[in-house]
Design a protein around this nucleic acid. Structure first.
Lengths: 224, 224
DNA sequence: CGACTCTCAACTGTTGACAGTTGTCAGAAG
DNA sequence: CTTCTGACAACTGTCAACAGTTGAGAGTCG
């Protein structure tokens, strides 16, 4: 476990527990806390400079997000997902995002899809310029997609699932070839959304996510 | 707020916080805690016979389930849903359950759908015998449906949404006519599942839930 | 040598007290 | 009468200490 410290109260009057949630989420997703690792309340709270109370609250919240696993009287563990669980998560994500895509395609106000278009163009130039393998704006695309669906409950559920997926595949950054293919697929999905073709958008998005799952699974099953 | 007391540790070694979650969830869903009502940590913890620590943990967990709303430095409130939010929740539920239905229809092992069939028959006799308006097994049908999809993440998400819907329409028990219609619709859905027709199952389930939403909305908009 | 028991250290669950914040209400000013 | 101000009461956020549980390892017995 790497050292950590509580960020200054930049976020106004956020409570210790709130800030701890953000810090821990980052630590879990960036690998500072490895899958399978057990969290020690005393050590962690000292590292964060707070007492165990707020830390426990943060741990409980992340548990309900699926980013931690709680065992009574034993503590919190960073979950290590199997490829089967990863597939389950992707299946759930497919259900949620294809629903969002249908909602967007049927929207009357079409100003939102333009936002998606510009975001994609930015991503394209970014990918060309620095030849980055990561395609960091992949999350942006899906995030924007969900936001445009304008259903808070849907957004929350989908983001929770995406966070768990990020954790499950945190060990494996996607390959350069996959990044470019993903961008192309995003473009296809966008075209369907612009055209208001809900069925096509849902079908393309499903295929896109299934390819992403395949990519992630192959990287998960063949570890370092 | 009605009085409450902590149940004896029948559930083996469940922690105080665990049991408090169950108690509070029941109190919220059965109306002991009214929508809009504010929870007082001191009073509630005394009523439950525990200290504020475990109670706070229970409150935080129910908050992440969507059954409570937390305002910093102000406390926890039982959410009062608008008809728009109820529609959002139903929309999300439709996405999740139609996905589950598709998965079931495509299952190779068809022993599960038989379980659904017998459950429906039981419900029919129950409805005929005591002429109950509540159709208490409605939740059973949808719960079984989800369980058969065999995706833990999907089950958890759907149950969270269903719980919020139950809270949103807690004030309005469904009408007798609606109960019988719902049973008939369940039978249609089941038939599609038995036949392995994923599209039909999804379409019928969507229609079923949309009618349920209409029913709930009319009762919500025309309060007592 | 293996299995069983007992002790113990480490840790989580819980508690009661303290600190900081929020909304309220009486009273003064306009 | 309305509006602002400032103290106060009630409550949530936080802390440090206590209690109960768990897993591990030394020691013992077969």
């Amino acid at each position: 476990m790497a050292g950590a410290s509580m960020p200054a109260p930049l976020d106004g009057d956020a409570t210790y527990a709130d800030r701890s949630v953000a810090v821990l989420r980052t630590m879990i997703l960036d690998g500072s806390l490895s899958p399978g690792e057990r969290l020690n309340e005393v050590h962690l709270s000292q590292a964060l400079g707070i007492s165990r109370g707020p830390l426990r609250e943060a741990v409980r919240r992340l548990t309900s997000e699926g980013l931690l696993h709680l065992v009574p009287h034993r503590g919190a563990f960073v979950p290590a997902f199997t490829s089967g669980q990863l597939a389950d998560l992707y299946q759930l994500r497919i259900a949620l995002e294809t629903h969002a895509a249908r909602l967007i395609a049927e929207l009357e106000d079409r100003s939102g899809v333009e936002e998606l278009a510009t975001a994609l163009d930015d991503a394209a130039t970014l990918l060309d310029e620095q030849d980055s393998a990561a395609y960091p704006t992949d999350q942006d695309f899906h995030g924007t997609l969900l936001r445009l669906a304008a259903n808070p409950a849907l957004i929350e559920a989908a983001e929770s699932v995406s966070a768990r997926i990020s954790l499950a595949r945190s060990r494996s950054a996607s390959q350069p070839a996959r990044a470019r293919a993903a961008l192309a697929e995003h473009r296809e999905i966008l075209a369907a959304l612009v055209g208001g073709d809900a069925d096509a958008a849902a079908r393309l998005l499903r295929a896109h996510l299934e390819r992403s799952l395949d990519n992630a699974t192959s990287l998960l099953d063949a570890p370092s």
